[in-house]
């Protein structure tokens, strides 16, 4: 399997990214649906939804279809809309199609987990979009992702296909963490007056990233912005921190190459090491919100370069031929 087909590698990588993306978006939406209940005024609620849109999809695409942000429309757009490339339904469908075209090398149970979600999908579409149904749907997405990961961890050999799946997952995670922090910093910067608001922003960021419980074990529940940012960017033991994800991408890539750097993978490793260095040299305590935001922007750009370079290294996309 070390000579895996490029198309297969590409499908595995995207299957994994799609599952991870769906899980992350489902969690963000689920947290928001609960917070919404406690929000003080309509203005806050509207702004919050705007941010959810920015985290889970693209505002530009949304406003290309709809004139204004309406909660029910947005929930529909983020969950089961066929018009949103990043809707949960589309993500899970892409993941299933990716799995379907690589079924011969995936554990049977993984296919069954994704297929089951697909088979139940019809029922979900027919249910009225009540809060309860939406929450149930979001839970189902999260459970499906977790079960998939369980199958992968417990039954796949640690070979090339497994490594591609893992790299897709870590990259997707790191990017999502950066996106969520970026939106949170932006909000923090705009409104520098009310302390309780800040508490709420950082708490939310932790919840979006399923990190509240882990954070609280290490830090007092005061939600100090620098503590939260350090935790989500640099904590080496938290599996959704940027640092953790990038360390694991590097480790996986290096395993893929048997610990050696060849001429074709040189650029890839250089970039990975550079990113790692940039993260470790960042002193979050010394930075203001503007600096933090530009660090996060920079990191997000690095992620897209990395994703492209990774694809090129393993021929995941057809190289452009000179004419």
């Amino acid at each position: 399997m070390s000579n895996m087909l490029s198309r297969v590698a590409d499908s595995l990588y995207w299957m994994s990214r799609n599952i991870e993306r769906a899980e992350n978006n489902a969690r963000v939406l689920s947290v928001q649906l609960i917070h919404m209940l406690e929000a003080s005024n309509q203005e806050t609620v509207d702004r919050d939804w705007e941010e959810i849109l920015e985290i889970c999809a693209s505002a530009k695409d949304y406003y290309g279809l709809y004139e204004r942000l309406d909660r029910d429309t947005l929930i529909q757009y983020l969950t089961i809309s066929p018009f949103n490339l990043n809707s949960l339904m589309n993500g899970m469908n892409y993941a299933r199609e990716n799995a379907r075209s690589t079924r011969d090398i995936l554990p049977e149970e993984l296919w069954e987990v994704l297929n089951e979600f697909h088979l139940d999908q019809k029922d979900w579409q027919e249910l009225p979009s009540t809060r309860q149904h939406t929450q149930d749907y979001l839970k189902k997405v999260i459970k499906t992702s977790m079960t998939s990961q369980g199958v992968i961890e417990s039954s796949m050999s640690r070979g090339t296909p497994y490594t591609f799946i893992k790299i897709g997952k870590w990259l997707e995670r790191a990017e999502k963490t950066a996106r969520i922090l970026n939106v949170t910093c932006e909000k923090n910067r705009k409104e520098t007056n009310v302390a309780t608001d800040h508490y709420y922003y950082w708490l939310t960021a932790l919840q979006f990233l399923n990190g509240y419980d882990a954070y609280i074990k290490e830090h007092p529940p005061t939600m100090d912005s620098k503590h939260v940012l350090s935790f989500l960017i640099k904590e080496e033991t938290f599996p959704r921190s940027i640092c953790y994800c990038m360390d694991h991408v590097l480790e996986a890539a290096s395993k893929l190459e048997g610990g050696k750097v060849s001429h074709y993978s040189e650029d890839l490793f250089q970039l990975l090491e550079l990113i790692q260095e940039e993260i470790s040299q960042t002193d979050i305590n010394e930075m203001d919100m503007n600096q933090l935001m530009s660090f996060l922007d920079h990191f997000q750009n690095r992620c897209s370069t990395l994703s492209r370079m990774f694809s090129e290294t393993y021929y995941l996309i057809e190289p452009v031929h000179a004419k």
């Binding site: 000579n3 087909l5 490029s6 198309r7 011969d104 090339t160 021929y315």
Partner: peptide, 28 residues
Amino acid sequence: AQQMGIELVEGRDLTVKDDVVYMKTIRG
């Protein structure tokens, strides 16, 4: 393909060079 342990390929995974058929893998 799975049961025989052979690669499942699509037309776009194959290419012919100098009348020899190759499949496109992550290692070339």
